[in-house]
Nucleic acid binder design. Structure first.
Length: 305
DNA sequence: AACCACTTCAACCGCCGACTT
DNA sequence: TAAGTCGGCGGTTGAAGTGGT
């Protein structure tokens, strides 16, 4: 069954709202409430469709709208809720007083999504991106206090390890029997590589539904229906985001684009190294990484040669 | 100053579910 | 139960803004 579009009348104005239109809408809603959005434009003397009026009111004119930058707390809340709810922006917005679904959606798409990608987290699943686990498990070391995100030496060390782990991945793809000696971890209080395998999600997202098992105290099935995620926002359940991983020695994000390209070309880091195509992609990526580093001291060249 | 590329965000579009007839 | 209406939602678009050259 279809439905007729609400704005099929010709001559209905579209595009940005003028201050006069805003004034009319505010005045009308203040006096009468919005009632039926479909009838509102006619009653308010607006040459707009009801849908447009509703959108303008809920996203912009509503008196309880909170404008301005998102706080860090709001940011964390959005990320947490998104990991539970996905792109259900209105649900997420209901936990952020004064914020609209549209605003949160825009904020997610323009800021948070990129931020998670830079951290190597898949913004859809909130899990480490495939074959980049080694990068991300470093956050475990920060979370359990072995590394301090405020310590620049530790940050440098983190970057070094990330690169060596990438190198190890590459070597293993080219020759599955090759491993980088564990001595690369010298300098860490806990050099055991298995530390890195501990898993990112368990430390960072300790309360994610994916980690809940049947019979857990928290009723996974009912969580969403109840719409009560407040427990997530309680201090004891709150785990701050790990810092961004620097991919170059100077901490710049120059290699973020590499990660992006890896994402769009899964073969580059495919665990199936039998395919010639996969191998050639690996070499391409390697070459590209090395070329990129020409600008910052041939870092990769030094490692790889 | 002019051009271009990129980012941001308000607004639109089409679909869906709830409700009514 | 089917058909129709409506509000709401999420994806997408494009104008405006910004920064770099």
């Amino acid at each position: 069954m279809g439905r007729s579009p609400c704005c099929d009348e010709s001559g209905v104005k579209k595009g940005p709202w003028t201050p006069e239109e805003d004034e009319k809408l505010i005045e009308f809603v203040a006096k009468n409430g919005h009632g039926s959005w479909r009838n509102l434009p006619k009653l308010a003397g607006l040459n707009r469709c009801g849908k447009s009026c509703r959108l303008r009111w809920t996203n912009y004119l509503r008196p309880d709208i909170k404008r301005g930058k998102f706080s860090e707390e709001e940011e964390s809340t959005i990320i947490k809720l998104h990991s539970l709810l996905g792109n259900r922006w209105s649900k997420i917005a209901s936990h952020l007083p004064g914020r609209t679904d549209n605003e949160i959606k825009n904020f997610w798409n323009t800021h948070l999504r990129k931020k998670l990608l830079q951290m190597g987290i898949d913004p859809n699943t909130h899990k480490p991106r495939t074959d980049l686990n080694h990068f991300l498990n470093l956050s475990q070391l920060f979370n359990n206090g072995i590394l301090n995100p405020l310590n620049s030496d530790h940050l440098k060390l983190q970057a070094e390890i990330a690169k060596l782990q990438l190198l190890q991945n590459l070597c293993q793809l080219l020759n599955p029997t090759t491993t980088i000696p564990t001595t690369i971890n010298n300098g860490l209080q806990n050099p055991n590589p298995s530390q890195f395998q501990a898993g990112f999600s368990s430390s960072f997202m300790s309360v994610m539904p994916g980690d809940l098992e049947d019979g857990d105290k928290i009723n996974k099935a009912n969580l969403e229906e109840m719409g009560n995620f407040d427990y997530l926002l309680q201090a004891e359940n709150y785990h701050p985001l790990p810092p961004l991983i620097s991919e170059s020695p100077d901490g710049s994000a120059s290699n973020v684009n590499q990660i992006e390209s890896i994402e769009t070309n899964p073969l580059c880091f495919s665990t199936n190294s039998n395919s010639p195509t996969a191998s050639s992609s690996i070499f391409d990526s390697l070459e590209s990484l090395m070329n990129d580093d020409e600008a910052n001291g041939s870092y990769w060249n030094n490692i790889l040669r």
